[in-house]
C-alpha cells in the first residue's frame, strides 16, 4: 500500500479505537487488530490496494462509530462475565452505565445498595473496634451514638453477617442481571436488520416503571409520615425512623423496590416470557 492508502486505513483504525474509548487497552488492541485483519483480507481478495479499492472496503465495513462501542462492550462482557476477570467486569459495567440511560440507572441503584451493605460492614467493624478499646481508631464516642437506628440497634456480629451477606447477594444479582441483559441484547447497529431490541426495550421500560413506583412510594409515604423533611435524601433520613410508623415502613418498602428495580424488571420479563412459553 502507498502512503495515501495506508493513511486511510490508519485513520479508520484510529476512529475505531476512539469509538472504543473507555474499554480496557487489551480489548481496544484486539478489536483494532481484528478489523485491521479484515481490511487486509478484503484488500488481498481484491488484489488491488489502490485508493478506490481501500475506500470501497472501508465503505462496506461501515463507520467505526456505528459498531465500535458495541464491539468493546461485548468483548469486555465476555472477558468479565465468562472468564471472571474482575477488571473487565467492572469496566464493562461502567462502560454500559455511561452508554445508556437504563445502564446508568441500574448501576446507580446497585451502587446505592452496595454503599448500604458497605456501611453495615463498616458500622459493625467500628463497633467491634470500639468494644475492643481501639478508641484511637474510631474515636472516644460509641459508634452506636452516631449510627442511624436500625444499625445502632443491631448486634455488631449480626450487622457484619448481614452486610457481608448483602454484598454477596448483590454481587450474584448484579452478575445475573448483566448476564441476562447482555445475553438478550442486540447491538443497536443491528436493530434495523434484526427487527429491534424487543427484550431489552421491554425490560428497560419495566425497570423504569418499577424504579419510578418505588421512588414515588418512598418519597410520598416518607413525606406524609414525616419520616424525612422536605427534599432530604430518603436513604439518609428514612433509615432512623423505619420502625416509627406504618408510613415509614411503607417508605422503606418503596426504597427497597427502587433499589431492586433492575432485578425485579428482569425477573418480570423472564417470568412473563416463561408464562408465554418462550425460551
Amino acid at each position: 500500500m502507498d502512503p495515501e492508502t495506508t493513511g486511510l486505513v490508519e485513520d479508520y483504525v484510529r476512529r475505531l479505537r476512539r469509538s472504543m474509548r473507555g474499554a480496557t487497552p487489551d480489548v481496544i488492541d484486539e478489536g483494532a487488530r481484528e478489523i485491521r485483519a479484515h481490511i487486509d483480507d478484503a484488500l488481498a481478495a481484491n488484489e488491488d490496494a489502490g485508493v478506490g479499492s481501500v475506500l470501497a472496503v472501508l465503505e462496506r465495513l461501515g463507520p467505526p462509530e456505528e459498531y465500535g462501542r458495541d464491539l468493546a462492550l461485548y468483548m469486555m462482557v465476555e472477558a468479565g462475565y465468562r472468564r471472571w476477570s474482575l477488571r473487565h467486569m467492572v469496566r464493562s459495567t461502567l462502560f454500559w452505565a455511561l452508554s445508556t440511560v437504563v445502564g446508568g440507572l441500574v448501576v446507580s441503584l446497585f451502587g446505592l445498595a452496595y454503599a448500604l451493605a458497605l456501611a453495615m460492614v463498616g458500622a459493625a467493624a467500628a463497633r467491634h473496634a470500639w468494644l475492643l478499646g481501639l478508641e484511637r481508631i474510631v474515636g472516644a464516642t460509641d459508634p452506636r451514638a452516631v449510627l442511624p437506628r436500625p444499625l445502632s440497634d443491631a448486634a455488631p456480629i449480626a450487622l457484619l453477617a448481614a452486610g457481608a451477606g448483602l454484598l454477596a447477594v448483590l454481587t450474584i444479582m448484579a452478575r445475573w442481571f448483566v448476564g441476562q441483559y447482555v445475553r438478550r441484547a442486540r447491538p443497536h447497529t443491528l436493530g434495523g436488520v434484526e427487527g429491534g431490541d424487543e427484550w431489552v426495550e421491554r425490560t428497560s421500560r419495566r425497570i423504569l416503571v418499577i424504579a419510578s413506583v418505588g421512588f414515588v412510594v418512598a418519597v410520598a409515604a416518607g413525606a406524609v409520615g414525616g419520616t424525612f423533611a422536605g427534599g432530604a435524601p430518603a436513604l439518609l433520613r428514612a433509615a432512623p425512623d423505619f420502625s416509627a410508623s406504618p408510613l415509614a415502613r411503607l417508605s422503606g418498602l418503596g426504597l427497597a423496590v427502587l433499589l431492586l428495580a433492575p432485578v425485579l424488571g428482569v425477573a418480570w420479563t423472564v417470568l412473563a416470557q416463561r408464562a408465554r412459553g418462550g425460551n
Binding site: 478489536g31 481484528e34 478489523i35 479484515h38 462496506r60 465495513l61 461501515g62 463507520p63 467505526p64 456505528e66 459498531y67 458495541d70 464491539l71 462492550l73 461485548y74 468483548m75 465476555e78 447482555v182 441484547a185 442486540r186 447491538p187 447497529t189 443491528l190 436488520v193
Partner: peptide
C-alpha cells in the same frame, strides 16, 4: 454493514 458482524460475533 460488514463491521456490525463483529459485535454480534462477540456477543
Amino acid at each position: 454493514k460488514e463491521g456490525t458482524i463483529y459485535p454480534l460475533l462477540n456477543r
